Amino acid sequence: MSPLLRTVNRILLGLAAVVLVCVGGAVLAAGLGLSVPSWWPWYGRSDVLLGETDRDHWSGEGWWWPAVIAALAIVVVLALWWLLAQPRRARLAEVLVDSGDGEGALLRGRALEGVLADEAGSLDGVARAQVVLTGRRGSPHARIRLLMEPHAAPEETLGRLTDEALAHARDSAGLARLPAEVRLRAVRHRAERVS
């Protein structure tokens, strides 16, 4: 996740938490009969969020309920989008490469993922390879998915992946270690009718 997205994410989470804690605490205080500020719309245990007068007033308006439902739907859609966007942001944007001069350089995470996927995909028996880097830029972790051909030997493929593709990526980036989680899946071919 980039520093800007991480900052925006933390600010939004912090604001949501503050609003929820303040509103929830004030409603709880009013419900328990404790003192609340004079501007607070609810005062006691018998007070309700939307009184009968307010409900009757707004229900007479034709736009009220569609507007409420539309606003709630927008809030739900935005919350779901934000929730589903979280795992995608876990991808490592850049990797810190040891340049040998003590300062280091930054390598785009997608570039290293592409090179690693290309090398893993060229192994015998691998139909397709997908690589995602996670973790911190100084200590990345690789998640690799290999789509295996029917004739492939998984043990041999994993050995070559470790000894060749992962070793090359680790050495070229100057990393002390590059742990990887590898998932193998077999290609499914359609059955063909033989006549």
Rank of each mutant, 00 (worst) to 15 (best):
I69S: 09
A117S: 05
D163K: 09
T157A: 07
A70G: 14
R160T: 03
P150Y: 02
W63L: 12
T157P: 00
E164L: 13
S46C: 02
G44T: 10
L184K: 02
H57R: 15
A73N: 06
P150L: 04
R183H: 10
R136T: 15
D54P: 01
Q86D: 14
P140C: 05
A120R: 00
G62D: 11
L72A: 13
R128P: 01
S99M: 06
W81L: 13
G104L: 02
V68W: 13
G125A: 02
E164Q: 14
V68D: 11
P87E: 06
L175C: 07
P154D: 08
G51P: 04
D101N: 15
R108W: 09
S139H: 12
A67T: 13
W63Q: 09
S46G: 13
D56S: 15
T162S: 14
R88Q: 13
L96N: 02
V48T: 14
L146R: 00
V182K: 00
A180F: 03
E181L: 12
H168C: 04
R177K: 12
G135E: 03
V131I: 08
L178I: 03
W64I: 05
S46L: 09
R110S: 14
R183D: 10
I69V: 15
R136P: 01
S122L: 08
R143I: 06
R170H: 11
V75H: 04
G51D: 15
G60Q: 12
I74T: 14
L83K: 10
M148H: 07
I69P: 02
A73Y: 06
L83W: 14
A152C: 08
E52W: 06
R110L: 11
L133I: 02
V48M: 05
L72T: 08
H57I: 07
A129R: 00
R170N: 07
P87D: 04
V132S: 05
E181I: 08
G60W: 07
L84I: 09
A176T: 11
A67H: 05
G174T: 04
D98N: 14
R45L: 05
L83I: 11
R89I: 02
W64C: 09
G104D: 05
L80D: 08
G51L: 05
A167T: 11
G102Q: 06
A152S: 13
R145I: 01
A180L: 04
R145S: 10
E94S: 13
A153V: 14
W63G: 03
G100I: 05
D118H: 08
E94A: 14
L184W: 04
L49S: 11
R143S: 10
D47T: 08
E155D: 15
L112F: 02
P140W: 00
R45G: 15
L175H: 02
E113I: 01
A129H: 00
D171T: 12
G102D: 06
W58I: 03
A117I: 01
A70Q: 08
E149M: 10
D56Q: 15
H151M: 09
A71S: 14
A120W: 00
Q130S: 13
D47M: 05
A152P: 04
A90C: 07
G109M: 03
L106N: 05
D101W: 07
L161R: 00
P179W: 07
L92V: 06
